[in-house]
Amino acid sequence: MDGTSQIGDHYHVIKKLGQGTFSHVLMARELISGHLVALKFVRKDRTRQTTFIHELNILIALSEYPGIIKTYPTYIETMDYFIFTQELAPAGTLQSIIKAEVGIPEEVVKRCAVQITAALDYMHGRGLVHRDLKPDNVLLMDKECYHIKLCDFGFTQLVGSLIPSMSHIIPYMPPELCSLKPKQLLVLDQSMDIWSLGILLFVALTGYFPWEEAVGHNHKYQMFLHWQDNRNYVPAPLLWKGFTQKALVMFLKLLSHNPSSRSPPDTVLKFLHLPWTAKVSSDSLVVEGDLNIIILDDNDELQVIEYIIQEQEQVSAVCY
């Protein structure tokens, strides 16, 4: 039972917008005003009333910010659902426009980055951590991402809250949460959102995850950690070779293994004027900007060669 039969006096349901483990979302038209809205149906068999009220209160409190989806201060309770109303995001989610193995254009990602970091700064300034930042939870008011909004605050809690281990791990989770054992608790702070922001930007630019989970036994994550700890001596892992050196610096600031070393979200703004993705030439070389850096793929091993262009057109190559 989807609950639609119990709201017929107030709304005309048009179609389903999304489905999750704990809830589903429908597009509907308010019968009195004629406005299109999004109705979120939260399953009562999966959600305690106190948890629902907690999320609803956070949503209402954050609604005044333009980069967070507006939630109306009422709800309907049926036998099976808690139902509340939000403004409609007509262009879907950020996830819906990310092409697998391709991503979305850099200029679009940068537009998203500006708005997401501003929304996170707004939340963090009020002592709140989103805890579930991912492309599915970024709503688009237009397909070009000139106006986007954060949503889904079911996991949001105050800084300093004690959070348990999760029943399953997703790529957006930071290593300190991935490695948490049952019955252990983690003191929550904003660094968790910063890590998720870094993964979100990587996925948006590439169309794939850098790893499945940020744990020691994951080979892709091991390679990243090895590079992070020895980046003056070893090149970036293969999955990261499509980024410029400046973009790699940005990612390292967001994805530090040490939570206390992660830079604040607005660090991203300092890199907006720089290219993030490297140009790929026809002979499979990854070329950065003015040819100062070239990354070669040689026998499955990357060699990074820095070309120092002298005034007399002499070029010397230094391998590291």
Rank of each mutant, 00 (worst) to 15 (best):
H24G: 07
H24K: 05
L26I: 11
M27I: 12
R29Q: 08
E30R: 09
S33T: 13
V42P: 08
R46I: 01
T51D: 14
N57W: 06
I60N: 05
A61C: 06
S63N: 09
E64P: 06
Y72L: 02
T74M: 07
T78L: 00
T78G: 02
D80K: 00
P90E: 05
P90L: 04
L94K: 12
A100D: 06
A100M: 05
E101I: 12
E101N: 15
V102D: 02
G103W: 00
E107L: 06
V108Q: 15
K110Y: 00
K110G: 01
A113Q: 09
H124T: 15
R126S: 13
L128M: 04
V129A: 13
V129L: 03
N137V: 09
D142C: 04
D152C: 03
S161N: 04
M166D: 12
L185T: 03
L186C: 08
W195Y: 09
T206F: 03
T206Y: 03
G207T: 08
E212C: 07
E212P: 01
H219E: 14
M223T: 06
L225H: 00
L225D: 00
Q228L: 01
Q228E: 02
D229I: 02
R231Y: 01
R231E: 00
P237T: 11
L238E: 10
L238K: 14
Q245T: 13
K246S: 15
F251S: 01
L255Q: 01
L255E: 00
S256P: 06
P259V: 07
R262Y: 07
S263K: 14
P264S: 00
P265T: 11
P265M: 09
K270D: 10
L272A: 02
W276M: 01
T277F: 11
K279T: 08
V280K: 15
E288S: 11
D290C: 14
L291I: 08
I294Y: 15
L296F: 13
D297T: 13
D298P: 10
N299W: 14
I305C: 09
Q310S: 12
E311P: 11
E313H: 14
E313F: 12
Q314N: 14
A317F: 11
C319V: 12
